[in-house]
Design a protein around this nucleic acid. Structure first.
Lengths: 246, 246
DNA sequence: CGGGTTGTTGAGCAATATCAATCAGGGTGG
DNA sequence: CCACCCTGATTGATATTGCTCAACAACCCG
């Protein structure tokens, strides 16, 4: 198991590694903070060398020390159900934070694994607590990030509770699209970094159903699909499919 | 629409209304705080006269001002899906907090409505932010409460994604049971304050399925059921049903 | 007492899961 | 370099779960 316990030497792997220069700072923790406060935050953040595919960032029940920001790549968070099945609770793109679930019980309730080679910023939570008592905008950001995670989860609850297979997959593709857009990446063409199995697990569908629905969307000209590469050909139709059933 | 904007006069309706004397303080926001800090917290909390059944505490898109603790009664939180359907995201018992979803966007994303006559403590969030910068244990409690909401939502995601109707309802009954127990109430006999429709909505099932499964559990002697009154007759079996499928 | 709302029960159906066969791609070892 | 295997994805056939529609019962409130 590879851990992200960065020494200061590691920080020099990439010489562009500070919140001040990071293109993601408009999405991530330093959002709307003053430059000097970002600097104080920056000094407690540890940046490790990239993790390869299928590496655990941490596992459920590990003691909670840090929250983590995805700098590049994609990770998935999974919980174990009572009968030992894995349930994916989210996929996280650059600029998104994982580990927030660990705060409640001082140990993580999820495991987090990379889906591809990924760089991660580790943010020791004890430091965050100290700093956020001193920097109101940081405290506010943490509150908001936690709250945003809640509203995201509730949207997912709604999706899982009410929607058909087509709606789920349409909504999933649109969610990825929007998040790419927010990162100044193409909204209409991107790579699905997760397997069909992972998609199905996340969306509460079997792998066969995922495959069938994607094939159907492709056949209907709504998307183009080549293995993991997707191109959304008909946004309005996909939007419709994600919403309306009748 | 009734609001909980309490004047100091309102506070005197019930002369036992302070966090220091509240039986729920071991579950609620003041958890593990020093007495004098609880006192400071107490002074910003506004306690209104009880709300009657089916009153909105707040509605989605209302500007976010406060979080709310349920003091007595039960409330439900609902979001509106894209096509205008209501999705219940949670039921909240005494000692539990609602309104945390509002922090992210400075307006609520859920509506919250009482299921029965309920007393609510209103906690202005701006005050909380100030105080929690000064009282580390309070800051920590807020972080933990937010994080706990996340882990709860994720458990629900797992339930909705993976489980059969029987598993969902078994798990739901057990969840209520555990929460009653934590409040020193009977774990094996309680009242379901929500309608079958609400249960179905929350669990992603139709009202007919809810009714059938409850009837089946009753017929099998696992629960006793008289309208909204439940009595869990066979805990181990219910536990089994909530977990194992095969 | 009556009417509206909520809950229960039954019958048939539709959506998705399950089971199974096949295919494609990638890595490995001969 | 190719044959082989292994994993992941696709597609087809069938089974099953829970939804839909419908009738009816119970309760609540005036």
């Amino acid at each position: 198991m590879i851990r992200t316990s960065a020494s200061s030497a590691d920080c020099q792997i990439d010489n562009n590694t500070s919140c001040g220069t990071c293109r993601l700072s408009g999405l991530c923790l330093p959002l709307r903070m003053h430059l000097d406060d970002i600097d104080r935050l920056d000094r407690v953040i540890q940046r490790s060398r990239p993790l390869q595919k299928n590496q655990y960032l941490y596992r459920a029940n590990d003691p909670f020390r840090s929250i983590y920001a995805v700098r590049s790549g994609t990770v998935k968070a999974t919980t174990l159900t009572e009968r030992g099945q894995e349930q994916i609770t989210g996929f996280y793109l650059p600029g998104e934070l994982v580990g927030l679930d660990g705060i409640a019980e001082n140990r993580y309730t999820c495991s987090v694994m990379t889906l591809e080679t990924s760089s991660i910023c580790e943010i020791p939570f004890a430091r965050i607590e100290e700093l956020s008592a001193q920097i109101p905008s940081l405290q506010r950001n943490i509150f908001q990030l936690l709250s945003r995670e809640i509203t995201h989860d509730q949207q997912l609850i709604s999706l899982l509770s009410k929607s058909s297979a087509e709606q789920r997959i349409a909504a999933f593709l649109l969610s990825l699209s929007r998040r790419h857009e927010a990162r100044h990446l193409a909204a209409n063409a991107f790579r699905l970094p997760m397997s069909r199995t992972d998609m199905g697990n996340f969306l509460g569908l079997t792998i066969e159903t995922v495959s069938r629905v994607l094939s159907r969307f492709h056949a209907q000209g709504i998307i183009q699909l080549d293995k993991k590469e997707v191109r959304i050909a008909d946004f309005p139709r996909l939007q419709e499919l994600s919403e309306a059933n009748n």
